[in-house]
Design a protein around this nucleic acid. Structure first.
Lengths: 249, 249
DNA sequence: CGGATCGTTGAGTTGTATCAAGACGGGTGG
DNA sequence: CCACCCGTCTTGATACAACTCAACGATCCG
């Protein structure tokens, strides 16, 4: 189905930047090579020099860094419509890897095509730039999350972020969404041990604010969860204006 | 002295992106309002909607976030030639504050002027974009640092980063540089308590790899420090080609 | 049925935080 | 010039959050 990849791109970008009709039709014409990657497969490896960026059409990916010690830090999760390595457009060698956490559908967009469209449509260029700036804002928030909050709050914060991101792209139903990560992956994202993730998770569940089973996150009390995580969505820089009221609380 | 601010900007950008002669002369003509800020003064506050970005001409600034709990996370340090809030060019409301850690000299560049120059000189636009991408890469590394390394290694990593950044802009003499931060500020950057920063610092000093007194960082054994911190400069995406061999090890 | 992955639990250890207090130095005002 | 204050650094004692190691249970799948 040609164009579905472009639709995902446009939808994702639209949550991060303003797109005119002209921008949309230009983006709709962008050539995108689609392919499937299986769970556990790397989409990009640290040190690569890609000539194209990977759009996530469906599924879930993360970027991560591996240390000499063998430890791993997940630095971000990406959902449908995100371009996890958009920065590779201008940063020649990748400083992180990207991994599919579940079977995913991705689309490759050649850097040359991105540069062409950027040159021709300044507002598209601005939108892409802005998308990378939003990613950066999220990294800042993660740094803060890891540096200042304890295990429970960190986890609550991550769950809030995940829910909101998916609500915005219409992948959540009410206050629940799919989040197919193992506790080991949560541990790597939160800078905690697996055991401690397990305990914090059970504590969160016991408090009645969330359920998290079989890859599904159900938030029973978003207010409580946001409070617990010190979550304030403004760092996501969402464009709420023309976005339908996705049950904005 | 007109132009010294522009020179700082060009020098800083040149470490992060390739600039043609044409780019340089365009940047040299950019209007920049200079002013001094005193130590402890905010250059920008979370929630602001600036219409200009702040170039750091001399001194030291950091970006930080304050939590409801009163805790604070420093998310980055900025040196001469950096533009700490360049992202505000496209991100309307600031999600962090910026603070002068010592008396500093900064220059304001109007967003309108940046947009004009970007429209006219695509390679300048690309250079600015790339500068924000390098910042993002550093945030990713910090997330990893906070999530995966223990106190000593975190600190070693930060010292390596600080030294290398200053070597690149010519502010270091050999393997030492000024780094006028208090231990409390280090604590906020590293996600540690002041007491623990003090102890880790003394341990680092005792190991003979560094000295850190009266705002001066002296690295006696860079190899050992890099090893301790698991430091690999590639995430800084430095352009080493036309940069004089600043004692590149 | 056996193996693999993932989640859960227990026990003991370690890294880091907190609280508290003293030491040092630079600046200010009497 | 001294006395004092304030910010910073240092040190000790204690508490706790999070880690490690180890084992077991539950699923799922071939």
């Amino acid at each position: 189905m040609p164009g579905s990849a472009n639709a995902a791109l446009i939808k994702g970008l639209a949550t991060k930047a303003r797109l005119s009709e002209e921008d949309r039709s230009a983006l709709a014409a962008l050539p995108i090579d689609e392919l499937h990657v299986q769970r556990g497969q790397d989409v990009l490896r640290e040190g690569d020099r890609p000539s194209r960026s990977a759009l996530l059409i469906s599924g879930l990916t993360c970027s991560y860094k591996t240390l000499a010690s063998g430890r791993r830090q997940i630095t971000a999760f990406y959902h449908a419509g995100d371009v996890p390595d958009l920065q590779s457009l201008h940063l020649d060698v990748a400083d992180n890897s990207i991994l599919a956490l579940v079977d995913s559908h991705i689309g490759y967009i050649r850097h040359r095509d991105l540069e062409d469209i950027s040159a021709k449509y300044p507002t598209v260029s601005k939108a892409l730039w802005r998308a990378t700036l939003v990613d950066a804002a999220i990294y800042r928030e993660w740094t803060t999350n890891l540096g200042q909050r304890d295990a429970m709050s960190r986890m609550a914060h991550l769950f809030c972020e995940t829910l909101v991101k998916q609500q915005v792209i219409g992948l959540a139903s009410g206050d629940s969404c799919m989040f197919p990560v193992t506790q080991a992956e949560l541990a790597d994202a939160l800078g905690l041990s697996v055991v401690h993730v397990n305990r914090s998770l059970m504590e969160l569940r016991a408090s009645g604010t969330i359920s998290f089973e079989r890859a599904e996150l159900i938030v029973h009390d978003l207010g409580a969860l946001e409070k617990q995580g010190g979550f304030d969505r403004s760092y996501l820089h969402l464009r709420m204006d023309d976005h339908a009221p996705h049950k904005l609380k």
